[in-house]
Computed example of a mutant assay.
Amino acid sequence: MNMHFDHVTLGQRVLFGSGRAAGNLAAEVARLGAGRVMVIASGSESSLAEEVTSRIDVAVFHDDVAPHVPIAHAEAARAVATQNAVDLLVCIGGGSTTGLAKAVALTTGLPIVAVPTTYAGSEATNVWGLTEDARKTTGVDDRVLPGTVIYDAQLTLSLPVELSVASGLNGMAHCVDSMWAPHTDPINRALAAEGIHALAAGLPAVKSDPRGLAGREQALYGAYLSAVAFASAGSGLHHKICHVLGGAYNLPHAQTHATVLPYVLAFNAPAAPEAERRIAAAFGTGTALAGLDALRETLDAPQALKDFGFDETQIPEAVELILPYVPDSNPRPVTATDLDALLRAAHAGETPSL
Protein backbone atom coordinates (compact mmCIF):
# COMPACT_ATOMS: atom_id res chain seq x y z
CA MET A 1 0.00 0.00 0.00
CA ASN A 2 1.32 3.46 -0.90
CA MET A 3 2.00 5.77 2.03
CA HIS A 4 0.19 9.09 1.78
CA PHE A 5 -0.27 11.72 4.48
CA ASP A 6 -0.11 15.45 5.20
CA HIS A 7 1.85 16.29 8.34
CA VAL A 8 2.61 19.67 9.94
CA THR A 9 5.39 19.93 12.52
CA LEU A 10 4.93 22.83 14.94
CA GLY A 11 7.90 25.15 15.40
CA GLN A 12 9.11 25.19 18.99
CA ARG A 13 12.38 25.42 20.89
CA VAL A 14 12.89 22.78 23.62
CA LEU A 15 15.54 23.15 26.33
CA PHE A 16 15.86 19.98 28.41
CA GLY A 17 18.12 19.55 31.41
CA SER A 18 17.79 18.87 35.13
CA GLY A 19 18.89 21.78 37.31
CA ARG A 20 19.10 24.14 34.34
CA ALA A 21 15.71 25.91 34.39
CA ALA A 22 16.84 29.25 35.85
CA GLY A 23 19.82 29.52 33.52
CA ASN A 24 17.87 28.43 30.48
CA LEU A 25 15.07 30.90 31.24
CA ALA A 26 17.53 33.79 31.65
CA ALA A 27 19.13 32.89 28.33
CA GLU A 28 15.76 32.75 26.57
CA VAL A 29 14.58 36.08 27.96
CA ALA A 30 17.83 37.64 26.75
CA ARG A 31 17.58 35.94 23.35
CA LEU A 32 14.01 37.19 22.91
CA GLY A 33 14.93 40.70 24.05
CA ALA A 34 12.02 40.83 26.49
CA GLY A 35 11.88 43.73 28.91
CA ARG A 36 8.45 43.33 30.56
CA VAL A 37 7.94 39.76 31.73
CA MET A 38 4.70 38.49 33.28
CA VAL A 39 5.17 35.30 35.29
CA ILE A 40 2.08 33.12 35.71
CA ALA A 41 2.29 30.57 38.53
CA SER A 42 -0.22 29.38 41.12
CA GLY A 43 0.23 30.41 44.73
CA SER A 44 1.35 26.90 45.62
CA GLU A 45 4.18 27.21 43.09
CA SER A 46 5.28 30.69 44.18
CA SER A 47 8.56 29.67 45.83
CA LEU A 48 9.44 27.50 42.84
CA ALA A 49 8.59 30.36 40.48
CA GLU A 50 10.83 32.73 42.40
CA GLU A 51 13.69 30.23 42.16
CA VAL A 52 13.25 29.72 38.41
CA THR A 53 13.01 33.48 37.74
CA SER A 54 15.84 34.47 40.08
CA ARG A 55 18.07 35.51 37.17
CA ILE A 56 15.57 37.70 35.30
CA ASP A 57 13.66 40.92 35.97
CA VAL A 58 9.93 40.30 36.42
CA ALA A 59 7.42 43.07 35.76
CA VAL A 60 4.51 41.25 37.42
CA PHE A 61 3.72 37.92 39.07
CA HIS A 62 0.19 36.57 38.57
CA ASP A 63 -1.16 33.67 40.64
CA ASP A 64 -4.92 33.69 39.96
CA VAL A 65 -4.91 30.21 38.39
CA ALA A 66 -7.83 27.76 38.31
CA PRO A 67 -8.50 24.39 36.63
CA HIS A 68 -10.10 24.39 33.17
CA VAL A 69 -9.36 28.16 32.80
CA PRO A 70 -12.64 29.86 33.72
CA ILE A 71 -13.30 32.78 31.40
CA ALA A 72 -13.27 35.27 34.29
CA HIS A 73 -9.73 34.20 35.21
CA ALA A 74 -8.65 34.54 31.59
CA GLU A 75 -10.06 38.06 31.32
CA ALA A 76 -8.40 39.09 34.59
CA ALA A 77 -5.01 37.82 33.43
CA ARG A 78 -5.40 39.56 30.08
CA ALA A 79 -6.09 42.82 31.89
CA VAL A 80 -2.98 42.41 34.04
CA ALA A 81 -0.85 41.82 30.94
CA THR A 82 -2.23 44.93 29.26
CA GLN A 83 -1.94 47.16 32.33
CA ASN A 84 1.71 46.16 32.79
CA ALA A 85 2.69 46.52 29.12
CA VAL A 86 3.92 42.94 29.12
CA ASP A 87 5.99 41.70 26.18
CA LEU A 88 6.61 38.08 27.31
CA LEU A 89 4.61 35.50 29.26
CA VAL A 90 6.43 32.93 31.40
CA CYS A 91 4.22 30.19 32.82
CA ILE A 92 5.58 27.91 35.54
CA GLY A 93 3.37 25.01 36.60
CA GLY A 94 0.96 22.43 35.28
CA GLY A 95 -1.77 22.38 32.67
CA SER A 96 -3.97 24.99 34.35
CA THR A 97 -1.10 27.48 34.51
CA THR A 98 -0.09 26.86 30.90
CA GLY A 99 -3.74 27.09 29.90
CA LEU A 100 -4.06 30.53 31.47
CA ALA A 101 -0.97 31.77 29.63
CA LYS A 102 -2.48 30.45 26.41
CA ALA A 103 -5.72 32.33 27.14
CA VAL A 104 -3.73 35.56 27.42
CA ALA A 105 -1.75 34.81 24.25
CA LEU A 106 -4.94 34.00 22.35
CA THR A 107 -6.13 37.60 22.47
CA THR A 108 -2.86 39.49 22.85
CA GLY A 109 -0.50 37.53 20.63
CA LEU A 110 2.17 37.66 23.36
CA PRO A 111 4.90 34.99 23.15
CA ILE A 112 5.09 32.29 25.83
CA VAL A 113 8.00 30.54 27.49
CA ALA A 114 6.58 27.51 29.31
CA VAL A 115 8.27 25.85 32.28
CA PRO A 116 6.23 22.71 33.09
CA THR A 117 6.21 21.15 36.55
CA THR A 118 3.88 18.25 35.65
CA TYR A 119 3.47 15.81 32.76
CA ALA A 120 0.33 17.45 31.34
CA GLY A 121 1.86 18.21 27.92
CA SER A 122 -0.15 21.38 27.25
CA GLU A 123 3.12 23.27 26.77
CA ALA A 124 3.80 21.47 23.49
CA THR A 125 0.42 22.00 21.83
CA ASN A 126 -1.39 24.84 20.07
CA VAL A 127 -4.67 23.82 21.73
CA TRP A 128 -6.46 26.21 24.10
CA GLY A 129 -9.41 25.65 26.42
CA LEU A 130 -11.77 27.97 28.29
CA THR A 131 -14.70 27.22 30.59
CA GLU A 132 -17.84 29.32 30.87
CA ASP A 133 -21.21 28.40 32.39
CA ALA A 134 -20.02 24.83 33.11
CA ARG A 135 -19.13 24.22 29.46
CA LYS A 136 -15.57 23.86 28.21
CA THR A 137 -14.68 25.17 24.77
CA THR A 138 -11.45 24.17 23.07
CA GLY A 139 -9.79 25.36 19.91
CA VAL A 140 -6.57 25.36 17.92
CA ASP A 141 -4.55 28.51 17.29
CA ASP A 142 -0.81 28.86 16.66
CA ARG A 143 -0.74 32.03 18.76
CA VAL A 144 -1.06 29.94 21.92
CA LEU A 145 1.83 27.57 21.16
CA PRO A 146 4.68 28.39 23.55
CA GLY A 147 7.71 29.43 21.52
CA THR A 148 10.04 27.79 24.02
CA VAL A 149 9.59 24.97 26.53
CA ILE A 150 12.07 24.57 29.38
CA TYR A 151 12.04 21.07 30.91
CA ASP A 152 13.76 20.48 34.24
CA ALA A 153 13.00 17.25 36.09
CA GLN A 154 14.07 18.83 39.39
CA LEU A 155 10.99 21.05 39.20
CA THR A 156 8.76 17.97 39.35
CA LEU A 157 10.23 16.65 42.61
CA SER A 158 7.58 18.49 44.61
CA LEU A 159 4.81 16.76 42.64
CA PRO A 160 3.51 13.94 44.89
CA VAL A 161 3.58 10.41 43.50
CA GLU A 162 -0.22 10.23 43.27
CA LEU A 163 -0.40 13.38 41.17
CA SER A 164 2.64 12.31 39.14
CA VAL A 165 0.81 9.10 38.25
CA ALA A 166 -2.38 10.88 37.22
CA SER A 167 -0.47 13.52 35.25
CA GLY A 168 1.67 10.90 33.52
CA LEU A 169 -1.37 8.85 32.57
CA ASN A 170 -2.85 12.03 31.11
CA GLY A 171 0.22 12.06 28.87
CA MET A 172 -0.39 8.38 28.10
CA ALA A 173 -3.91 9.33 27.01
CA HIS A 174 -2.43 11.82 24.53
CA CYS A 175 -0.38 8.97 23.07
CA VAL A 176 -3.22 6.46 22.83
CA ASP A 177 -5.68 8.97 21.39
CA SER A 178 -3.09 10.05 18.81
CA MET A 179 -3.14 6.54 17.34
CA TRP A 180 -6.63 7.10 15.89
CA ALA A 181 -7.41 10.82 16.22
CA PRO A 182 -8.90 12.67 13.21
CA HIS A 183 -5.58 13.84 11.72
CA THR A 184 -3.29 11.01 12.75
CA ASP A 185 -0.45 9.98 10.47
CA PRO A 186 2.62 7.71 10.62
CA ILE A 187 4.74 10.43 12.26
CA ASN A 188 2.20 10.99 15.04
CA ARG A 189 1.98 7.25 15.64
CA ALA A 190 5.76 6.91 15.85
CA LEU A 191 5.99 9.74 18.37
CA ALA A 192 3.07 8.34 20.35
CA ALA A 193 4.58 4.86 20.48
CA GLU A 194 7.88 6.20 21.81
CA GLY A 195 5.92 8.32 24.27
CA ILE A 196 4.08 5.23 25.57
CA HIS A 197 7.40 3.41 25.93
CA ALA A 198 9.00 6.30 27.85
CA LEU A 199 6.04 6.86 30.15
CA ALA A 200 5.68 3.14 30.84
CA ALA A 201 9.33 3.12 31.95
CA GLY A 202 9.40 6.47 33.72
CA LEU A 203 6.23 6.42 35.81
CA PRO A 204 6.99 3.19 37.73
CA ALA A 205 10.46 4.60 38.43
CA VAL A 206 8.87 7.78 39.83
CA LYS A 207 6.65 5.69 42.06
CA SER A 208 9.47 3.48 43.34
CA ASP A 209 11.97 6.34 43.77
CA PRO A 210 10.09 9.67 44.06
CA ARG A 211 13.28 11.66 44.61
CA GLY A 212 15.15 10.11 41.70
CA LEU A 213 15.60 12.18 38.57
CA ALA A 214 16.00 9.35 36.04
CA GLY A 215 12.34 8.31 36.15
CA ARG A 216 11.11 11.89 36.14
CA GLU A 217 13.27 12.72 33.12
CA GLN A 218 11.80 9.75 31.24
CA ALA A 219 8.30 10.86 32.21
CA LEU A 220 8.94 14.43 31.02
CA TYR A 221 10.41 13.13 27.77
CA GLY A 222 7.38 10.89 27.26
CA ALA A 223 4.98 13.70 28.11
CA TYR A 224 6.60 15.96 25.52
CA LEU A 225 6.38 13.29 22.82
CA SER A 226 2.76 12.61 23.72
CA ALA A 227 1.87 16.27 23.39
CA VAL A 228 3.65 16.72 20.05
CA ALA A 229 1.77 13.72 18.67
CA PHE A 230 -1.53 15.01 20.06
CA ALA A 231 -0.99 18.53 18.71
CA SER A 232 -0.77 17.14 15.18
CA ALA A 233 -3.25 14.25 15.40
CA GLY A 234 -6.01 16.21 17.14
CA SER A 235 -8.57 15.25 19.77
CA GLY A 236 -9.94 11.72 19.57
CA LEU A 237 -12.82 10.11 21.43
CA HIS A 238 -10.99 10.01 24.75
CA HIS A 239 -10.29 13.73 24.86
CA LYS A 240 -13.79 14.67 23.73
CA ILE A 241 -15.20 12.67 26.63
CA CYS A 242 -12.81 14.10 29.20
CA HIS A 243 -13.14 17.72 28.08
CA VAL A 244 -16.91 17.54 28.50
CA LEU A 245 -16.65 15.84 31.89
CA GLY A 246 -14.08 18.33 33.16
CA GLY A 247 -15.93 21.42 32.00
CA ALA A 248 -19.48 20.35 32.86
CA TYR A 249 -18.83 18.68 36.22
CA ASN A 250 -15.59 20.34 37.33
CA LEU A 251 -13.75 17.02 37.57
CA PRO A 252 -9.96 17.11 38.09
CA HIS A 253 -8.27 17.10 34.71
CA ALA A 254 -5.47 14.56 35.11
CA GLN A 255 -7.43 12.12 37.27
CA THR A 256 -10.33 12.13 34.81
CA HIS A 257 -8.03 11.29 31.90
CA ALA A 258 -6.27 8.59 33.92
CA THR A 259 -9.59 6.98 34.85
CA VAL A 260 -11.34 7.09 31.47
CA LEU A 261 -8.39 5.95 29.32
CA PRO A 262 -8.66 2.15 29.72
CA TYR A 263 -12.36 2.20 28.86
CA VAL A 264 -11.80 4.10 25.61
CA LEU A 265 -8.90 1.81 24.75
CA ALA A 266 -11.04 -1.27 25.39
CA PHE A 267 -13.82 0.22 23.23
CA ASN A 268 -11.68 1.21 20.23
CA ALA A 269 -8.96 -1.47 20.19
CA PRO A 270 -10.99 -4.22 18.45
CA ALA A 271 -11.77 -1.84 15.58
CA ALA A 272 -8.20 -0.54 15.21
CA PRO A 273 -5.95 -3.63 15.02
CA GLU A 274 -2.87 -1.85 13.64
CA ALA A 275 -3.00 0.84 16.33
CA GLU A 276 -3.65 -1.83 18.96
CA ARG A 277 -0.54 -3.74 17.89
CA ARG A 278 1.61 -0.62 18.04
CA ILE A 279 0.38 0.25 21.52
CA ALA A 280 0.97 -3.32 22.70
CA ALA A 281 4.47 -3.31 21.23
CA ALA A 282 5.26 -0.04 23.00
CA PHE A 283 4.20 -1.63 26.29
CA GLY A 284 6.00 -4.86 25.45
CA THR A 285 2.86 -6.91 26.10
CA GLY A 286 0.61 -9.22 24.14
CA THR A 287 -2.26 -6.74 23.94
CA ALA A 288 -2.59 -3.00 24.40
CA LEU A 289 -5.16 -3.31 27.18
CA ALA A 290 -3.01 -5.82 29.04
CA GLY A 291 -0.09 -3.39 28.92
CA LEU A 292 -2.13 -0.46 30.17
CA ASP A 293 -3.82 -2.52 32.87
CA ALA A 294 -0.48 -3.83 34.14
CA LEU A 295 0.95 -0.32 34.26
CA ARG A 296 -2.11 1.03 36.06
CA GLU A 297 -1.90 -1.76 38.63
CA THR A 298 1.78 -1.04 39.24
CA LEU A 299 1.02 2.65 39.69
CA ASP A 300 -2.12 2.28 41.83
CA ALA A 301 -3.81 4.47 39.24
CA PRO A 302 -7.17 6.23 39.74
CA GLN A 303 -9.97 3.69 39.34
CA ALA A 304 -13.43 5.29 39.28
CA LEU A 305 -15.00 8.61 38.33
CA LYS A 306 -17.26 8.38 41.37
CA ASP A 307 -14.14 9.00 43.49
CA PHE A 308 -13.77 12.47 41.95
CA GLY A 309 -17.31 13.76 42.33
CA PHE A 310 -19.00 12.44 39.20
CA ASP A 311 -22.50 11.25 40.12
CA GLU A 312 -24.24 8.39 38.35
CA THR A 313 -27.33 10.56 37.88
CA GLN A 314 -25.24 12.87 35.65
CA ILE A 315 -24.47 10.16 33.09
CA PRO A 316 -27.53 10.68 30.80
CA GLU A 317 -26.77 14.40 30.54
CA ALA A 318 -23.07 13.70 29.95
CA VAL A 319 -23.94 11.33 27.10
CA GLU A 320 -26.02 14.04 25.42
CA LEU A 321 -23.21 16.56 25.81
CA ILE A 322 -20.47 14.26 24.49
CA LEU A 323 -22.24 12.64 21.53
CA PRO A 324 -22.15 15.69 19.19
CA TYR A 325 -18.37 15.92 19.63
CA VAL A 326 -17.50 12.30 18.83
CA PRO A 327 -15.14 12.38 15.82
CA ASP A 328 -16.56 10.86 12.63
CA SER A 329 -13.16 9.23 12.13
CA ASN A 330 -13.30 7.19 15.35
CA PRO A 331 -12.38 3.59 14.49
CA ARG A 332 -15.74 2.38 15.77
CA PRO A 333 -19.16 4.06 15.53
CA VAL A 334 -20.27 5.48 18.86
CA THR A 335 -23.90 5.46 19.95
CA ALA A 336 -25.58 6.94 22.99
CA THR A 337 -25.89 3.43 24.35
CA ASP A 338 -22.14 2.89 23.92
CA LEU A 339 -21.30 6.12 25.74
CA ASP A 340 -23.74 5.33 28.52
CA ALA A 341 -22.15 1.91 29.07
CA LEU A 342 -18.62 3.34 28.93
CA LEU A 343 -19.37 6.10 31.45
CA ARG A 344 -21.18 3.74 33.81
CA ALA A 345 -18.19 1.38 33.79
CA ALA A 346 -15.77 4.27 34.35
CA HIS A 347 -17.99 5.71 37.08
CA ALA A 348 -18.02 2.44 38.99
CA GLY A 349 -14.42 1.48 38.24
CA GLU A 350 -15.36 -1.82 36.63
CA THR A 351 -12.64 -3.88 34.97
CA PRO A 352 -12.38 -2.72 31.32
CA SER A 353 -13.04 -5.47 28.79
CA LEU A 354 -12.86 -5.70 25.03
Results as ranks from 00 to 15, higher is better:
1 M>T: 15
6 D>N: 13
7 H>E: 08
7 H>R: 06
9 T>A: 13
9 T>P: 10
11 G>H: 15
11 G>T: 14
12 Q>Y: 09
14 V>M: 06
16 F>G: 03
19 G>A: 01
24 N>L: 09
25 L>E: 01
30 A>W: 14
33 G>L: 03
34 A>C: 05
38 M>T: 10
38 M>V: 07
42 S>D: 05
45 E>C: 13
46 S>P: 11
47 S>W: 13
49 A>P: 00
51 E>R: 13
54 S>P: 10
55 R>K: 12
61 F>I: 07
61 F>T: 11
66 A>Y: 09
67 P>Q: 15
70 P>H: 04
74 A>D: 04
80 V>P: 06
80 V>K: 05
82 T>S: 14
83 Q>K: 10
87 D>Y: 05
87 D>T: 08
89 L>I: 08
91 C>I: 05
91 C>S: 08
92 I>K: 00
93 G>V: 00
96 S>W: 07
96 S>G: 04
96 S>E: 10
104 V>N: 01
105 A>Q: 04
109 G>T: 06
112 I>G: 02
112 I>E: 02
112 I>T: 02
113 V>W: 00
115 V>R: 01
115 V>C: 02
116 P>Y: 00
120 A>C: 09
123 E>T: 06
126 N>F: 14
126 N>I: 15
129 G>H: 11
130 L>Q: 12
136 K>A: 06
141 D>R: 12
145 L>A: 01
147 G>Q: 12
147 G>W: 05
149 V>Q: 00
150 I>Y: 01
152 D>Q: 03
157 L>N: 05
157 L>A: 00
157 L>C: 04
157 L>G: 02
157 L>S: 12
162 E>H: 14
163 L>D: 13
163 L>P: 08
167 S>N: 09
167 S>M: 11
169 L>V: 11
177 D>T: 10
180 W>S: 09
181 A>Y: 02
186 P>C: 03
187 I>L: 15
191 L>C: 12
194 E>P: 08
199 L>N: 02
203 L>K: 09
206 V>M: 07
207 K>V: 14
210 P>Y: 10
214 A>F: 13
214 A>C: 14
222 G>E: 06
223 A>M: 06
224 Y>S: 13
225 L>R: 03
226 S>E: 05
229 A>S: 03
229 A>N: 06
233 A>E: 11
236 G>L: 10
237 L>A: 05
238 H>R: 07
240 K>R: 15
243 H>K: 15
244 V>G: 02
244 V>M: 13
246 G>C: 12
248 A>L: 12
259 T>K: 00
260 V>Y: 00
262 P>H: 01
262 P>S: 02
268 N>I: 11
272 A>I: 12
273 P>T: 09
275 A>R: 01
276 E>N: 07
283 F>R: 02
288 A>R: 02
288 A>W: 00
291 G>T: 06
298 T>H: 12
298 T>M: 15
307 D>N: 11
307 D>H: 08
311 D>F: 14
317 E>S: 13
319 V>G: 02
323 L>E: 08
323 L>K: 08
325 Y>C: 14
327 P>N: 12
327 P>E: 09
329 S>G: 11
331 P>T: 10
334 V>I: 08
334 V>S: 01
335 T>R: 07
336 A>D: 11
337 T>D: 13
339 L>M: 04
340 D>S: 10
342 L>M: 05
342 L>T: 09
342 L>F: 00
344 R>P: 04
345 A>V: 06
347 H>N: 08
348 A>E: 05
350 E>K: 07
354 L>A: 14
